[in-house]
Design a protein around this nucleic acid. Structure first.
Lengths: 152, 152
DNA sequence: GGTGATAGGTTGGATTATTGGACCGACATC
DNA sequence: GATGTCGGTCCAATAATCCAACCTATCACC
């Protein structure tokens, strides 16, 4: 009844990746969020643009609201109409979406990427992950594991 | 028989995020990849550390190999034993995993993150997404949509 | 020779999730 | 009055997932 993904917390490594996926890892969740971040905030439009069936989308939006990724706001009375807007946590997923897009463009999608962004600097956007402190790229050899979550 | 996720390509917006999720978006796929990137490359160990059931994990690893994210390499004969190692595409997902970890630490996990990394510069790793060209942070107001995938 | 451990799965049966489509109430517009 | 929009819910059929048990093969030990 709750959500299947929740059972995931019961075993495996204690890990924020697993915890994050417990919130946004179910099918359609990220695609719904993609639409909201693109500015599509109405149920019907999100349904059309993702291809999700309406009842699953309804369930996903509900969990995303419960978990604080989206907020559901009434924008008119009579008849009551709602829109979904991203919370701070939702907006914080934007870099991850762009990272996924970059990865998909490079390793999955044939031909040029169907969606393209330009940065303020004028260049086509190809995001890169850097250390928040020294701003050097985060490459495999440049990090050291300090502490690892235990397997429960 | 193929994979449920594949049907996703049939509708919705033409989008590399959706395409990427078609490869790595199923449950357990990213957690299996997490273990491989942490250096756990044997089936039993991945099963224990993720908490996935063995048959599902077996299916997920097979798709990840088919799709070029992992490679399955025999490391001994008699009895034949295999290990899973990341391909270039798999290693390219490391920044996304770190981004997910950062997001989970901040918005989902209670208390301090269970897993922590240190960068070469000496600081605890808090990755950040920047423009690959000018190296400025990718903030919501600093990008412009040039082209958007069509809804099919 | 027998027992147990390790490795990498497969099989079966029960439980859940997902799907597409139909349907609904409250309007608004033609 | 008919049709359309919006934000969903409900339904039956299908598909995926889960867990436990089992299997094959080898090695180590006694």
């Amino acid at each position: 009844m709750v959500e299947g993904m929740v059972t995931m917390a019961g075993a495996g490594r204690d890990c924020s990746i697993a915890n994050a996926l417990g919130v946004i890892g179910e099918r359609w969740s990220l695609l719904a969020l993609r639409e909201v971040l693109l500015g599509e905030r109405r149920f019907d439009q999100i349904a059309r643009n993702t291809g999700a069936s309406r009842d699953i989308l309804s369930a996903r939006l509900r969990t995303l609201v419960e978990r604080g990724v989206l907020a559901k706001v009434q924008y008119q009375e009579r008849p009551p109409r709602y829109e979904y807007i991203p919370t701070e946590a939702g907006r914080a997923l934007r870099p991850i979406m762009l990272g996924l897009m970059e990865w998909g463009d490079r390793y999955v999608t044939d031909g040029p990427g169907p969606t393209r962004w330009e940065h303020d600097c004028g260049a086509e956007l190809h995001p890169e992950m850097v250390c928040g402190h020294c701003h050097a790229p985060v490459l495999p050899g440049t990090t050291r594991l300090v502490r690892l979550g235990q397997v429960r």
